[in-house]
């Protein structure tokens, strides 16, 4: 469905995407993680053909992407994007008229569930509601590829939970590739199937959540018990407090010896250790 081959994107002398090769062959909800400025939005814009690659090739649905040939099957709307100062209902109607596969009923249902006043104009909406409207417009499109950039920015906890439910409902109704970039890692972990982590424009990992549950774990115990175990393990981070150590491992599970406990690593901990937290080695 989506294939990146040695893609480089530069803004002047800054390299936003650095030789990324990536394959997204099948439908699913993909979570795109990365720190601020890691290149998440750039990656999405490249898939949508909103910006041109500096080098390399992107193929979506069998066709090479460029700014002059934006893939018809991709829908990407930046969450922080500015909209016409029209009524919510008019914006949805306009989006429905401009897009081929727009699900008006789904948009209406989401508008009601999130208590978006259809008569309010865009500039009268709160920051979170503006994001919600843009997210609704994106998600109501039944294109083969949906790209959601920070779709829950400015949402409170209840809205985030509702959003996750609706994202799942939308996916179940219309299975397709949905790539969600977010900073709220543990929220998205509940619904995502695969994970893509980029850092400084480089691809760090592309893996399934199930695989991560199996391979990402934390060993805790005394310093003297843990240290010898680390030889031969892919330790992505460790924290030491006095004589106690917690080591974060990504790799095959081991059977811990006595005195060492093994715990599942949260997605957030995994992400922090992968991209460089304080305890990173």
């Amino acid at each position: 469905m989506i294939e990146f081959t040695d893609v480089i994107k530069k803004y002047g002398s800054t390299t936003a995407i650095d030789r990324i090769s990536l394959k997204i062959p099948e439908q699913g909800i993909y979570c795109l993680l990365g720190r601020n400025g890691a290149g998440k939005t750039t990656l999405m814009k490249l898939i949508a053909g909103h910006i041109a690659v500096t080098k390399g090739k992107i193929i979506v649905d069998g066709k090479t992407v460029s700014t002059s040939r934006m893939p018809e099957c991709v829908n990407f709307i930046d969450s922080g994007s500015v909209q016409f100062n029209m009524r919510v209902s008019d914006l949805i109607d306009t989006a429905a008229a401009l897009q081929d596969d727009f699900d008006r009923d789904f948009a209406r249902e989401m508008t009601e569930r999130f208590e978006l006043n259809p008569r309010k104009k865009f500039k009268q909406l709160s920051f979170g509601m503006k994001t919600m409207l843009t997210t609704i417009i994106s998600l109501s499109n039944n294109s083969k590829v949906i790209l959601l950039d920070e779709p829950t920015l400015g949402f409170d906890a209840i809205m985030r939970d509702q959003f996750n439910t609706l994202l799942l409902e939308s996916y179940q109704a219309h299975p397709r590739v949905i790539i969600v970039s977010t900073h709220l890692i543990d929220d998205i972990a509940k619904i995502t199937e695969r994970l893509i982590i980029i850092n400084n424009g480089k691809m760090l990992i592309e893996t399934g959540i199930d695989d991560l549950d199996e391979k990402a774990y934390t060993l805790s115990g005394s310093l003297s018990a843990i240290t010898p175990l680390l030889d031969g393990l892919n330790c992505i981070g460790k924290t030491t407090m006095g004589s106690v150590m917690a080591a974060h491992i990504y790799g095959e599970r081991i059977t811990p010896p006595d005195g060492v406990t093994i715990d599942r690593m949260s997605l957030q901990d995994f992400f922090i250790n992968m991209v460089g937290g304080k305890g990173n080695v």
């Binding site: 909103h50 930046d78 016409f84 914006l91 989006a95 401009l98």
Partner: peptide, 15 residues
């Protein structure tokens, strides 16, 4: 100046 806003509603360049 409406170009970007139109794209943000899912419009295409040709449209």
């Amino acid at each position: 100046g409406n170009f970007r806003k139109m794209m943000n509603l899912g419009g295409k360049r040709a449209d």
